[in-house]
């Protein structure tokens, strides 16, 4: 598709203050070239990301959502990231029922020192979402099929 070349996906990344945010910052400071398509939203812990935030991001026009937290056992609040993992699993299941492509929503553990990983994840996700094209709610983007 022609459109695939031009389409600039918008990806919202919810990043944990204690790990990924620092990594992202480092990636930025180092002027690593990670995609300009991503918008960071800093949260105090991945466990603070309510499923409503994720759905809300899609509703407001995101084409993909990335959720990042500390590695297992490293969460600042000890279990926030496990909670995030459980939510992610269940939400993912629901999104697939609603016709979401798997690549639009992703969870990654990225520590403060993994700037390179962050860059790679973002680039990879951007590319995958670019291939999928803009997000449309299942089936039809206009209410009542335009009627």
């Amino acid at each position: 598709m022609m459109q695939t070349e031009e389409f600039q996906p918008r990806i919202v990344a919810f990043v944990c203050n204690w790990c990924t945010y620092i990594a992202a910052d480092a990636a930025g400071v180092a002027r690593a070239r990670y995609s300009p398509n991503v918008r960071l939203i800093r949260t105090m812990c991945s466990g603070r990301v309510d499923p409503q935030f994720v759905l809300g991001a899609f509703e407001k026009g995101a084409d993909g959502v990335l959720l990042c937290g500390c590695h297992p056992r490293d969460c600042h609040y000890s279990v926030g990231n496990y909670k995030a993992l459980r939510r992610y699993k269940l939400l993912k299941k629901m999104l697939s029922q609603m016709g979401f492509e798997d690549d639009r929503f992703r969870l990654e553990w990225i520590s403060a020192s993994e700037a390179e990983k962050f860059r790679k994840v973002v680039e990879d996700m951007t590319e995958r979402v670019r291939r999928l094209g803009p997000f449309k709610p299942n089936g039809s983007s206009t209410p009542n099929g335009g009627k």
């Binding site: 499923p51 409503q52 909670k83 699993k89 269940l90 939400l91 629901m94």
Partner: peptide
């Protein structure tokens, strides 16, 4: 709560007593 489904997911996730994938 605005989105009932999202809330349900948050709730169930919070009471599941497991950490391993």
């Amino acid at each position: 709560v605005r989105d009932q489904g999202a809330k349900g997911i948050a709730y169930v996730s919070s009471i599941l007593d497991f950490d391993e994938e």
